[in-house]
Amino acid sequence: MIALVLVHEGLDVSTDLEITEPGPSGGVRHRGGDRIVVTARADRTALEWALALANRTVALTVGPLDSAALLAWALGRGATEAVRVWDEALDELDLVAMARVLAAAVRRIAPDVVVAGERGLAGATGAIPALVAAHLGWPCVDGAIRLAREENEMVVERRLRGGRREELAVPWPAVVAVAADSVEPRYVSVGARRAAARRGHETWSLADLGLTPGTVRGAVRLRLDRVDWPRPRPRRTAARAPAGPARSAADRLRQLVGGGSAGANRSAPATPPASGLVEGDPRAVADRIMAFLEQQGFV
């Protein structure tokens, strides 16, 4: 069985970013010029499942030469081959165009199953696996938390809302998107990555996939105009206030931390419920909070 794993890397958006002109960096870059790149945890998980499922595992990424480190990681973990697709025309693709490139690469490798992370890095929609499947006309399963191989099909367990599970019989070829937390990805030592980097990877151009820059670029319909920082925004509530008497902020807080409301619309208990809510003169309250924090060793 051949498994193809889609892996990708991107800017570590949890680090200090600044907004730039929309361009190759997607409108953000790291402050101070550091470039910290991370691999989505879901991609790591996808590789784990692919290795467990197949005897031949190909890691595929779309990216410039920098992505070699990502493929070295995949090879170091146990992937048998690694393929990087790159062409300058591939910068800044939208999802549909990217899926088209990936689908072409999948066709060329002709795996029995494509395993991808359910969601990529921040801002990811999770749509890529589904779009690739649509291009290929293959079945697609997302939210997979367990994959197993049987005689002529795979058994995939999905996690549904509310913690329910369903088990699907999936004929191959198929695309499976796995949940990031479905398995603990293994660590790949730096030594193993270095050794794998020496093994190298295949690089395919658009021509290798039977595509042209024109057809790929032509598929891009979206354009990035602007990136903004999140703005503090009042929480939107229901258009109309709920029926019943209005309750004070303190009352609502008490309800939150004390496990019940002492509001007028309920009969007050004989003793107020034990709660962490401190009331009174703001100065005195502040002192009590400080005393508490000091006592707990926070300050």
Binding site: V38, E184, R186
Partner: peptide, 26 residues
Amino acid sequence: GAVDAATTRALEATIERGNPFGGVPA
């Protein structure tokens, strides 16, 4: 790769961010 999850995160953070705490360099 037989390393527990917390240790894996510390090692990955050392490789990716240059510190085992996973802190942002800035």
